[in-house]
């Protein structure tokens, strides 16, 4: 029992991280139908920026938080402006290669800025782990879970209650029609990029204290987050959240009850299963109503 609880704690911590990365993928896919293979790299930049701003410059945490998101979203904006919008023939495969190129490029830049070494920073608050029925839960895990849930809820309200959010949704459903009603669809695409990459930055921020941050940490995180997004249903906000938690918990259970050497396989087997059985994901997003 104690073990199972510990597995669950480990699972939801990782799950929350996967979820928030998955949300980033989903947001972008929803409005642009682009799978951003550089998403993991933005997570990495987020984590490393926090290392610099909070760990080295000793800025107050909230300020470092905001600055990191601004920096990473800014990078995302440049990425959209120069790499995505300039494409003459926005074919799926061309965009995939461009984002792959961008991920290599960003990794290279990060290596130049931060070097090849890994960094670690202390947790946001230095309380000891909580003991629940013999299982330990880090305070940082609570931070992670709370922040990721809050971000998703905030996004939900943004998309459903604000005019801009509704405009993005309109663009997602039909770009031309939205444009005809006077919505600046180009700007909306840009905003989606910023939001999606901002979510990547948040993911980087919250995991920085529990893991080691280095220029090459992003790729695997990106792929796992992607699996989570597919699992929940690409394009669905709640799907991404559910997919992330399911993936995290199943991975922890897999380690606990099967074998730790197959941990990474779990994500990809799940991905294949969901693709074969229910390609739309657990929460099947329909073309018309995606959120």
């Amino acid at each position: 029992m104690q073990e199972i609880l510990q597995y669950i704690f480990s699972g939801i911590t990782n799950g929350a991280i996967y979820a928030i990365i998955a949300v980033g993928f989903s947001l972008l896919y929803n409005s642009t139908e682009i799978i951003n293979f550089a998403h993991g790299e933005f997570v990495m930049i987020g984590a490393l920026s926090l290392v610099t701003l909070w760990g080295s410059f000793h800025l107050p945490l909230p300020l470092a938080f905001v600055l990191t998101i601004v920096v990473v979203s800014g990078t995302g904006l440049l990425f959209e402006r120069f790499a995505i919008r300039t494409v003459k023939k926005p074919d799926h495969i061309v965009l995939v290669i461009i984002t792959v190129g961008a991920s290599i490029f960003l990794r290279g830049i990060a290596m130049l800025i931060w070097g090849k070494d890994a960094y670690s920073i202390p947790p946001f608050s230095s309380n000891p782990p909580i003991d629940i029925a013999g299982a330990r839960l880090l305070i940082q895990s609570i931070w992670i879970i709370v922040i990721s849930l809050l971000s998703v809820v905030a996004l939900y309200f943004f998309y459903n209650k604000t005019l801009t959010g509704k405009a993005i949704r309109a663009c997602a459903i039909n770009k031309k029609a939205a444009w005809l009603t006077g919505i600046p669809s180009g700007k909306m695409v840009m905003l989606s990029f910023v939001l999606s990459i901002g979510m990547g930055a948040v993911a980087g921020l919250i995991i920085a204290p529990i893991t080691m941050c280095s220029y090459d940490m992003g790729t695997m995180l990106g792929l796992k987050g992607f699996c989570a997004a597919m699992l929940g249903g690409l394009g669905s906000l709640w799907g991404a959240l559910i997919g992330g938690f399911i993936l995290g918990i199943l991975e922890a259970m897999g380690v606990g009850f099967v074998s730790s050497s197959l941990k990474d396989a779990i994500a990809f087997v799940l991905l294949l299963l969901i693709l074969f059985i229910r390609p739309g994901g657990i929460i099947q997003s329909k073309d018309v109503q995606r959120f």
Binding site: E3, Q6, Y7, F9, S10, G11, T13, N14, I17, R136, I207, I210, T211, D216, M217, T219, M220, L221, E251, A252, V255, G256, S260, S261, K263, D264
Partner: peptide
């Protein structure tokens, strides 16, 4: 005997198993 990926963010599951 357990293993982990070098980029994994959390190894508590493996360690819990070892503790058992």
């Amino acid at each position: 005997t357990e293993s982990f990926g070098n980029k994994d963010t959390d190894m508590t599951a493996q360690l819990t198993k070892i503790r058992k």
